[in-house]
Design a protein around this nucleic acid. Structure first.
Length: 423
DNA sequence: TCTGGGGTCCTAGGACCC
DNA sequence: TCTGGGGTCCTAGGACCC
């Protein structure tokens, strides 16, 4: 049977989330900023129309913000995650198999659906339901491969006449669309590869579809070869409904201001270690390899640069925050150099194990702390409850290095948000 | 003054083994 | 002085994604 994929993708997701709770901003240009209010990561359609580019640093558009009354929001991931869950739940009700691909998009398996209902109608129904129940607008692209579904979705957004839903099952329509799409807009073709392809005379998605897959494989990679096949309607990428367990956990942040004090930097590393350990327990894994990195900002001309990273292997895998804090502190002491203005630090965890599946080091008997599991689980529970915050002394109590979030919206959908709404 | 964070996959090359 | 071939594992780096 011919496979059928749909890609549902929320329009201007973060900006739409913010607007949902601010009807007064309905027709106002809105942008959402990255952590530290550094650059623009989402734009409402009014902001796009003003020519605000994705990824542009905030300070470069200060004048435009003033002039056009653009409203800025710091990113509020708790809010976006909550609304995302609501959208995904609806998609899961509509299709037998769904792959949540990112916070704002999901692939759906529609194989077999066309026997019951016309695919275009189906897409329109899903779109209407999400709109009605969440207030979020989605675009839907339907095609025989994931790469073509992406392209169909792209068209659904670009051409308003489609009503936000495009059925790209017919090879004829595929060809017509591919001819209109820049090769750089194809899923899996980034800036580097797009430049190389164009030098070779491959400018549109159709040009790429007509390239020789074998030649593409030898000149580029097996990944791009799959893209070529997918553009021709041969499905190479499966729907992945079960989220693969993580291979790596990274916690890193740029600081709100440059950090020169050793103690401050150490506290930041401790904080990221704690966050990483929480994520690790959320994955129900133990980890053995820990990396710490610290670095200055490469963006400041003439700034003395320092970028250090170091990994360490634990004798036995662990998920205990205290074990990890001990290691990251030792690493930090080794890589720290005085006399620099640090801009960013991070902690990475790798080499994961399931409980009970690893070989303990014979000569270094388990250092497992008593009651480790119970303690960590209580800490996580308190911190997730929204009722309070328990933390480790090494994190410090008054972080001066923490994120800049000057335009944060209230937590509309979580418990304190509800309360704040009442007050 | 001010430039995000968190991931994945693939490949090449070196170390090491038999 | 001559000096193979094949395999695995690991790591670093490059490219991509949202």
């Amino acid at each position: 049977m011919q496979t059928v994929f749909a890609l549902a993708d929320c329009n201007n997701f973060y900006a739409s989330c913010e607007k949902l709770f601010r009807p007064d901003l309905k027709h106002v240009p809105v942008v959402v900023l990255s952590n530290n209010d550094g650059c623009v990561v989402a734009r409402s359609k009014e902001a796009k129309a003003l020519g605000i580019k994705m990824g542009v640093p905030l300070f470069q558009i200060k004048d435009q913000i003033q002039q056009h009354g653009i409203v800025c929001f710091s990113s509020n991931y708790a809010l976006y995650a909550d609304l995302s869950n609501r959208v995904m739940t609806i998609l899961e009700e509509e299709a037998p198999r769904v792959e949540v691909y990112s916070i704002d998009e999901a692939f759906m398996d529609l194989t077999g659906v066309s026997h019951a209902v016309d695919l275009l109608t189906f897409g329109q129904q899903v779109k209407a339901k999400v709109d009605k129940w969440t207030g979020i607008t989605i675009g839907v692209g339907i095609a025989p491969t994931k790469t073509l579904a992406k392209l169909a979705n792209h068209a659904a957004k670009k051409y308003p006449a489609t009503g936000g839903v495009v059925d790209l099952m017919s090879p004829d329509r595929q060809k017509r669309l591919l001819a209109l799409v820049d090769v750089g807009d194809v899923w899996g073709v980034g800036r580097r590869i797009s430049t190389r392809l164009k030098e070779q005379g491959i400018h549109t998605a159709l040009d790429l579809a007509r390239a020789n897959p074998k030649a593409i494989r030898s000149e580029y990679s097996v990944v791009l070869e799959r893209t070529v096949r997918e553009l021709n309607g041969t499905s190479c990428l499966e729907l992945e409904t079960v989220r693969p367990t993580k291979q790596q956990i990274v916690c890193s942040r740029s600081f709100g201001h440059k950090v020169t004090d050793k103690q401050e930097l150490r506290e930041a590393v401790a904080k990221y270690t704690t966050r990483a350990a929480e994520k690790l327990r959320g994955e129900q894994r133990l980890c053995r390899v820990v990396t710490v990195f610290i670095r200055t900002s490469p963006f400041i001309p003439g700034e003395p640069q320092c970028s250090k990273a170091l990994s360490a292997e634990l004798p036995n895998p662990t998920d205990d925050t205290r074990d990890l804090l001990e290691v990251t502190n030792v690493i930090f002491q080794q890589i720290y150099r005085a006399g620099f203005r640090y801009a960013k630090a991070g902690v990475m965890l790798a080499d994961f194990y399931e409980q009970g599946t690893f070989q303990e080091d014979l000569f270094r008997p388990s250092t497992n702390r008593t009651q480790s599991k119970a303690l960590m689980s209580v800490v996580d529970k308190i911190n997730h409850s929204g009722l309070g915050n328990v933390f480790f002394a090494s994190q410090g109590t008054s972080p001066t290095w923490s994120m800049k979030r000057e335009h944060l919206s209230p937590a509309y959908t979580t418990r304190w948000g509800d309360l704040r709404g009442v007050l």
